[in-house]
Design a protein around this nucleic acid. Sequence first.
DNA 1: GTCTATAAATGGATAGAC
DNA 2: GTCTATCCATTTATAGAC
Lengths: 199, 199
Amino acid sequence: MSTSGVPTRRGRPGYDQQGVLDGAVELFNLHGYDATTMDMVAAHLKLSKGALYHHISSKEQLLELALDRALGALEGVLADSRKLGDAAARLEFLMNGAVDVLARELPSVTLLLRLRGNSAVERAALDRRREFDARVTELIAEAQSDGTIRRDIDPGAASRMLFGMLNSLTEWYRPDGSGDGPRIAADMLTVALDGLRAP
Amino acid sequence: MSTSGVPTRRGRPGYDQQGVLDGAVELFNLHGYDATTMDMVAAHLKLSKGALYHHISSKEQLLELALDRALGALEGVLADSRKLGDAAARLEFLMNGAVDVLARELPSVTLLLRLRGNSAVERAALDRRREFDARVTELIAEAQSDGTIRRDIDPGAASRMLFGMLNSLTEWYRPDGSGDGPRIAADMLTVALDGLRAP
DNA sequence: GTCTATAAATGGATAGAC
DNA sequence: GTCTATCCATTTATAGAC
């Protein structure tokens, strides 16, 4: 099954739902969800509005599908991190995994990070995100007990600063095929752990 | 002249423009600019829409006024930083000043950081913001030459990571009168410069 | 699976009375 | 300075033909 937006069923023209979703999310991130109209989405896909609504049931369904994708990926990394031993290893795995998800699922995560809670769908996604944040804070507190993370910063504040930096990726990182993703991920972890000051 | 939203002209009821602006920006940040209707703004101020338009000429003017306030404050800190001597001192002043502006002008800066460039007003503000970012990157490059800031990170990336962390304040810091602002500012500079790792 | 046409509701903004 | 009433463009979504 294709997730690239290019239809795969042999001989059949037109979009599948994933292709419609990818095009819509691209526009949502370009102009913001609220400022993007279904006319714009249809034009972007070179479809009429009637044809667009053949693939999806509502504008909000597009948002819901994208948010579930982003949250599923982040929660997956969190679940995988639980398999590791000490807090330091779990935190490092989580930081790496989060940057990886941000880069790989940039469109859907970008959408997630801009939510304001204007509908039931948005509020449900924000709840799931808060749950994720709470788990990260717990992990940081544990790593502080271990002596891995500095103890002079409140774990909640540390978690927000860490993900404030990581999440800013959605505002400036644009994959360009140059393969610089791993380098930027490594740089972010360096700065998050050791700071900007010259050693 | 009051900037608190509470009218000051003796005996005269009703709002001045600043009061209307403050109420509107509060709603813009709560729901997003595009998702906020002028009906909502009027209801929030306990005014009719007709009365609301007596104080301002358009929804976009409210946005423009708020963005100018945010950008003016940030550009002011940048201008003041130029009075200092070496790059290290100027960068430290700028980091402190930026956190201070973020906290003091939280509503208008929050609005600025969420822009998507959907209109001429938004694009002009984004241009001013890019100019600010370019100056920060220059300053970081200079501090790298001085040996103050680590040289193994690209100055543009370092600038984005730094302000990614600082700007995240708009997503979680809520002044509560407890006077914890200076503490949080100091913590952010500690983490930005020396990292989260236990010393 | 796509199209045109249109329904139904909402949005920004204005008119004119008080 | 505020109100009610209204205009007109836009928006989400559906109907029904091909």
